[in-house]
């Protein structure tokens, strides 16, 4: 009896090759980051990025987290991490709260121009921050919110994306559930808190991931709004360090690359931990 030879499925081989090549391309810069963060600045200046890993990670970590430059000495890595966290959480939570409430009003209340209002909100997708950055800056400045967390967060949180997703989600919740709650004596606020919020929890988690990463990676807006070194976020602060490279001192490759690693970690961790929720939120309907 002969065992039939296992056939090689060329399409699978092709698929996997594409995926492997893609992964390598994605991972190479990260490897370079780690490599440069693990050697001395002198080594990197002499040889550039390479495959030799050094033992300087703890030293560079110490510098990245606690060393400050500039006049005030406030822009340590720790401080920037803290600012980034505030921006990420404030941005995500703000967008979710505003988006949910807007969607709630549009879907469940018989407003005269609900559909129109929705489409007006929706068209703001065509006007991202970059397009309206000057007027936005002017408003924040006139309100005296430059160099504040409010100024950093509030102008960004009105969100067509979140409103849209929550609207679609709410519309898929059966009408009878709303009516049952009405008969059970749940008013609008109770219905929102007792029924709608818990039902939307997977959706909220999915939104949270997207928005947190989005907020964390903001660059242009924080650069404009924060001139005070104590208010720098990681993403903009790293830029500041690489800008001071032109002096006579050795460029601080180790420190800036380690900061970059720190900057990519929280979004990665959040995505990894919430991944199952994320998929659930966008696909499953548990109603």
């Amino acid at each position: 009896m002969s065992v039939p030879a296992r056939r090689i499925r060329w399409s699978a081989v092709l698929d996997h090759s594409i995926l492997i090549i893609g992964s390598l391309i994605m991972i190479l810069p990260v490897v370079m980051l780690v490599q440069m963060a693990s050697t001395t600045d002198l080594h990197t200046t002499k040889f550039g990025p390479g495959w030799v890993f050094g033992d300087q990670l703890p030293v560079n970590f110490e510098k990245a987290m606690f060393k400050a430059d500039g006049f005030s000495g406030e822009n340590t890595g720790l401080r920037m991490l803290y600012n980034s966290m505030i921006l990420g959480f404030g941005f995500a939570i703000g967008k979710i709260v505003i988006g949910m409430m807007a969607a709630y009003a549009i879907v469940y209340f018989r407003l005269k121009f609900a559909t129109l209002a929705f489409w007006v909100i929706f068209t703001t997708l065509l006007l991202p921050l970059e397009v309206r950055i000057l007027p936005s800056y002017e408003i924040v400045q006139k309100l005296g919110m430059l160099n504040t967390y409010q100024g950093l967060i509030i102008p960004l949180i009105a969100s067509a994306t979140a409103t849209f997703f929550f609207r679609q989600y709410f519309r898929s919740i059966p009408e009878e559930l709303v009516e049952a709650a009405r008969i059970d004596g749940a008013g609008p606020i109770k219905f929102f808190i007792d029924i709608l919020v818990p039902l939307s929890r997977t959706m909220i988690a999915a939104m949270f991931i997207i928005m947190f990463v989005y907020g964390w990676n903001q660059y242009l807006w924080p650069t404009m709004i924060t001139t005070d070194e104590g208010m720098y976020t990681l993403v903009r602060g790293i830029k500041q360090i690489t800008q001071t490279l032109e002096g006579t001192n050795l460029p601080e490759y180790g420190r800036s690359n380690l900061l970059a690693i720190i900057a990519i970690l929280p979004p990665v961790l959040i995505v990894i931990f919430f991944q199952s929720w994320f998929v659930k939120g966008l696909t499953e309907s548990d109603k």
Partner: peptide, 20 residues
């Protein structure tokens, strides 16, 4: 009068239980 104040109870075709 609001449904909650009519002293009624209703059973729906698809049950309309709160899933969570």
């Amino acid at each position: 009068v609001d449904p909650a104040d009519r002293d009624i109870a209703m059973v729906f075709q698809n049950y309309a239980l709160y899933p969570h």
